[in-house]
């Protein structure tokens, strides 16, 4: 039976964009305001879940062609590399560095290696959440 969900699907096309922008904002504001990698990852996976509900798993795989199990591994790799990098130059494990740079459009910005660690957390959270939901949703 074919069903007609045009209101839900059109609302999803608008809402997913807003939700992902909110997730990116939460991710980057984690150092100074509320937010961070965990909430950003959860909200990103909420957007992907919304696509899965409004369309189906096949379409969601076509829209986001990522194997989420690889996402877990790459997130762990990014985080552990951020932790191991100071050891290579003779500092304690998980030492973070930061400095101020003059970026083209944004202006004076503080770039911190804690963001890379947070990126790893973000990737792991998205990967774990989507793996759980996808494998539960696929089983008949």
């Amino acid at each position: 039976m074919k069903t007609n969900d045009i209101i839900l699907q059109t609302a999803t096309k608008v809402a997913v964009f807003i939700i992902i922008m909110f997730a990116v904002r939460l991710f980057f504001s984690g150092h100074y305001f509320a937010g961070g990698g965990f909430v950003g990852g959860l909200i990103t996976s909420a957007a992907i879940v919304l696509i899965m509900i409004a369309f189906d798993l096949k379409t969601a795989k076509k829209i986001v062609p990522i194997n989420y199990r690889y996402l877990i591994g790459s997130g762990l790799l990014v985080s552990s590399f951020t932790g191991l990098f100071p050891v290579l130059i003779g500092k304690p494990f998980l030492t973070h560095f930061y400095s101020y740079y003059q970026l083209p459009i944004i202006g004076k910005t503080s770039l911190h290696t804690a963001t890379l660690f947070d990126l790893g957390v973000y990737l792991v959270v998205v990967g774990v959440t989507m793996t759980i939901i996808q494998s539960i949703g696929e089983s008949e």
């Binding site: 069903t3 809402a15 939700i19 919304l50 509900i53 189906d56 798993l57 096949k58 949703g137």
Partner: peptide
């Protein structure tokens, strides 16, 4: 966002009996 997604998931469960289908 969470209230929206939760309500949609419940509505789809009530309508179709499954929330995430493989091929609609």
């Amino acid at each position: 966002i969470l209230a929206f997604i939760g309500t949609i998931a419940f509505a789809k469960y009530l309508e179709k009996g499954e929330i995430i289908e493989y091929d609609r």
